[in-house]
Design a protein around this nucleic acid. Structure first.
Lengths: 205, 205, 205, 205
DNA sequence: ACACTCGGGACCTCCCGTTGTT
DNA sequence: AACAACGGGAGGTCCCGAGTGT
């Protein structure tokens, strides 16, 4: 018996994350997670009180950090926020694995599945969305005062719309399984983000 | 005991539609649907071979017609397509019930849940999306030749982006349960759609 | 597949009654009951919503009728109630199987186990006790006016004491597993019941 | 970390006693006992091999001493045994807490639950009952030769009956949760015990 | 002497689908 | 066409006990 509680717990979390991503929270069976993780029921029950707590821990300790490092932190780095958004987008598109394309965004999947039926989940997931929107809005506001973003846009509204459009885009790809469509939508997103740049004024007279 | 078979079938379909909408396809129990519909299991299995066929019939006979009448047909009517899109959007926002706000879009819900695990579902749902996108693209193309839409946009790309943004918007509202956020996102959507109009040229020479 | 709902239900009830009697309600496993009854989970779940409802149905449809026919109805027949009590007692002692000796009284067992933890059980079981005490009290009252029972006793108090002593007696036998002790306690009970007869007065002046 | 072993052991015993009393031996979970006692599983399994040995130790070291000091020792004191029995009874009635009323007698509870399924428990519990009956019988025998108890009674039979009636009385109160009924039964018990006194003879001719 | 981790089984619940019946 | 009984399995919970590490 290998006694390594942290490793066991981490194994449980990452395996559960993938199972939830692939099959959804409710459809993912604990037995299935356990078999994949190579962990027994007793160990699971020692680390988490029940399936819900496992799920919430996955949100807090796997999903949220992943969203932060992928989407939020890049925006906090100095530089043109429009370029930053486009960069993150391109980065995600390039790294998109088959799993991402077939299973969509784990954050949005969980949010769509669990929001109507579990307030604890909804609260935490919405918290991540709030962080994300705030980060985009802050970047836009900064870019606006730096002259990299049009003055006519409202940072909050734009941030909310970008997040919505982004999740909608991933969902569309997942539902269509079509790479060409995916490229179209990404192109649409890019054009929208580009449109946030200030309109070039004629220099003189 | 011999009741109207069509009525029974219809009852089953609409009840199943609502249960799927509220709890998701997998989480909705047949027994629960049956109890709400006031129909017995024998009747169900007389009309449908299994849960999947019931689900597919719901997609074909309830979901698709509803999407067509709400989203597609209004676009086919003559008139400015930008106004048409804005009108449909406003119409949906105004009619939005609490169920819509908490449970989201039935089409997208099903697509997100079932696409990765059931190809039959994915095919039909994607078919509805294709219809939808085509209708928007056609309207945009028409509007473009009529001078109501900017020439610089690509109808297919824009249509795909609009559908994605729209589904993302509904999903955001469902996840946040926040009316103010909902209004922000709708505002963002409206601004985007408005931006499709041609830039007003100086009236006179 | 033999379809006989009443028989299946009855089989479930009587088997559950015996399993509850032998192992207690909580310790009796549904799987065990089903195996003994030769019934499947589906059938059980069709007839009863859960273990508790099965238990309550056992109380209502097996236990209560048995108590009534064994203890209550004999007392309602006309005749000397003291003789009636003694007769019932002797009858039960003579019919006492090994199961009765080892497992005690199913009514009292359930009452002792479930009263502190399930109000639905407690209510129904106490209802049976109330019926029983009332029947004894009524018989004593009748016997008192007929001159077969001492006038100095209080029917309610005596009835409550008899039931308590009786259940205590069965419990003692169950705990001791000693036939001689059983006979001693029964003798004690008989002496107490005999003492309810009126003191014989000198016939003549 | 090195604590007082005796104190830990004692804590375990008294906590287990209360949990067994409240929920029964089988229904009481080790984890629950441990949490209440503030002791870990390692400590428990250091002091006791398994749940059964903990239970047997509770019987030997908590339950038996408590029964002895409450019921047996008062009887061994000189004086009228009828008064002694009535005094003990009244003392218990007066001290009866809500826990006693709802959970009954820990000795009888354990005996009723465990006798049919665990011979080790049955043996020890019956041993306590034997001690108890013997003490009552001895007191009655002593009272009989002292002229405080009727000569016509058999000490063994009467002792067995008293214990049975007493446990039955507590059980009735537990099942009914009715204070008035409790008072009735206690009154019945008192009348029975009073009836053990010798009948007052007319002193002279 | 005690703490923490882990093993695996048994329990109740509940579900989808089938079969015999009316 | 519709009903009610039934089959059988999987899911989450939770528990007792064993093992390792101080």
């Amino acid at each position: 018996m290998v006694k390594n509680p942290d490793q066991t717990r981490q194994m449980l979390l990452t395996t559960a994350f993938h199972e939830f991503h692939r099959h959804g929270y409710q459809a993912a069976g604990l037995d299935s997670i356990l078999k994949v993780a190579g962990v027994t029921k007793g160990a699971l029950y020692h680390h988490f009180a029940n399936k819900q707590e496992l799920g919430l821990a996955v949100v807090d300790e796997v999903l949220a950090p992943w969203i932060r490092s992928t989407w939020i932190e890049p925006l906090e780095r100095p530089g043109n926020p429009v370029d930053g958004l486009l960069g993150s987008l391109r980065c995600v598109v390039d790294k998109a694995t088959a799993e991402t394309m077939e299973c969509g965004c784990p954050l949005n999947n969980l949010a769509q599945e669990m929001s109507p039926i579990d307030e604890a989940f909804r609260g935490r997931l919405e918290g991540i969305f709030v962080e994300w929107r705030s980060a985009i809005a802050a970047a836009l506001r900064r870019g606006r005062s730096d002259g990299q973003v049009r003055r006519s846009i409202d940072p909050e509204i734009t941030a909310a719309f970008i997040v919505a459009a982004f999740e909608g885009a991933i969902g569309s790809v997942k539902a269509s399984r079509s790479l060409p469509l995916g490229r179209q939508i990404v192109r649409g997103l890019e054009e929208y983000i580009e449109s946030l740049r200030p309109t070039r004024r004629r220099k003189a007279s």
